[in-house]
Amino acid sequence: MKAITRRRLLAGAVVSPPLLWTLAFLFVPYLIMFTYSFYLKQFPMFAPAFQFGNYLAILIDPQYYQVLLRTFKIASIVAVSALLIAYPLTYFLVFQLKNKRLRTALYMAVIVPLWVSYLLRAYTWKTILGTEGVLNSFLVWTGILDQPSDIFLYNQFSMALTLTYIFIPFMVMPIYTALEKIPRSMVEASKDLGVGPVRTFLRITLPLSMPGMIAGLTFTFCLTFGDFIAPFLVGGPNGFMIANILQTQFGAALNWPLGAALSIVMLAIVLTIISVSDRLERAGRLDMD
């Protein structure tokens, strides 16, 4: 009895710090946000209440739901283009490149930008796409353009481009892992059974790498969905995303209840996506023995 009590105390002691941390810095703030989302805006701050006006506003006010839809669109574009770029690259690294050292080096080259400040990486595109930027100088120098153009920066294209660049490592990593896990004999067996390289890819390699693709799509989508720096730096007037709106509610607009409701909506969307992808991934995960 005494031993059991002591063991429980010990177990409690080990578990409680992370538990307290989670409680204090995640669960409680969520709860506060959730409570705020039902409050009423009232000068100078807000008044406690229980009403759904904030959520209703998000649903019917175009300035909110349109931005939400735009965010959805941008996040989808970023996720899909990251997949389309990352997959062939990763496939080449894992299956075509015979030199192991070179493979690791190239893989690291893709991953290493993650250690560089996000701001810096976003800012880089400003200097590339801007009117005084590298791209414009090049186009003017080659004579393709008479004068620098401002069509490259401050729009949704530049935003999708920047975010794809920034988040692509999160697509490469899971796909790399998934492809590396596919035994070579699987591909050989397919060819051995009379199936050519293209159909072997479509029927064996692609389905077996599905978990990696789902993970990559989830990462890039969710990261883009909550981003507010890229819109700020390269997005321009019609490039605002939901996180920017959210941020202004707590800042300039000073509408905490609406901001809280927005954040709850975002949280719900992201959690839904993560749980769906988790389920998909689990269904697609296969015992490869």
């Binding site: 004999s185 051995d192 059974l193």
Partner: peptide, 29 residues
């Protein structure tokens, strides 16, 4: 290339396709 040869291999690790049933595995080719 292997897919044009009339030989078939039984692999050491079997190399069965995990995302297919036994019937689909055998009928694959």
């Amino acid at each position: 290339p292997p897919y044009k040869r009339q030989v078939n291999t039984v692999f050491q690790d079997y190399a069965l396709f995990p995302h297919m049933t036994i019937r689909e595995n055998v009928g694959y080719g």
